[in-house]
Design a protein around this nucleic acid. Structure first.
Lengths: 109, 109
DNA sequence: GGAATAGATGAAGACATGTTCATCTGTTCT
DNA sequence: AGAACAGATGAACATGTCTTCATCTATTCC
């Protein structure tokens, strides 16, 4: 079970922040479907090339994606299956949480 | 597999942001171990009562925790098993990602 | 070599976020 | 009712984050 000290919490938080923004989630779910070049990604998710590049750098630094040059393109992929699973499970649980969210009373007000 | 449109991405991102901060992760992992009153939480994670309260409100609004009054205390718990599992899986995957992060070359520079 | 394509990057600005401080509500106990 | 305890809340401030803009590097093709 999850039991964190302050350091571990900081580490986990830093990585989860990668999944905490719509733009990065869209990028990651594209990559979940297969390798993609930067321009492809930009078009697929409706962002500018520069914005995508910035987010990819962040994801790279966190070790979630890798890019390899192929001709003039750089093709990105998810780093490993942990990333894919984390993504899948996060989406799954959040969507199931949403089902229970309709009009839940706020018992603490 | 995870396949999101822009709306779903925003929803998922909003919820995952709850797990993207050390303070909230610490609060949630405390609750993962069992129900806790606000003051207990504050002491356990080393935050001020007010800060904890603010974060609990956020978590409440996202439907991740609930609080019920018990005497003068308000005792918080995780909302359901989805929250617990999401937390466990997130920590698990992130920690396993970290193992592979030592000196990984940045193929895209 | 020069033009065109594909990405990366730094700076800047707008916006969001997290904490603290002071204060307010609600509960218990005498 | 009054004091003490437990939380919630709004304002304010500092910090972080995301996007855009302009520009830079690297690769391909003529």
């Amino acid at each position: 079970m999850a039991n964190l000290d302050a350091d571990a919490a900081a580490t986990v938080a830093a990585t989860l922040q990668a999944l905490a923004t719509p733009s990065r989630l869209l990028i990651l779910t594209q990559l979940r479907q297969g390798p993609r070049a930067v321009t492809e990604l930009a078009e697929a998710v409706g962002m500018e090339q520069s914005a995508v590049s910035h987010q990819l750098r962040l994801l790279r630094n966190l070790g979630l994606v890798t890019g390899t040059r192929q001709g003039r393109s750089i093709v990105y992929s998810l780093y490993d299956t942990h990333v894919a699973q984390l993504l899948d499970e996060a989406v799954y649980h959040v969507e199931h949480l949403r089902l229970g969210l309709v009009d839940r009373p706020d018992r603490a007000g």
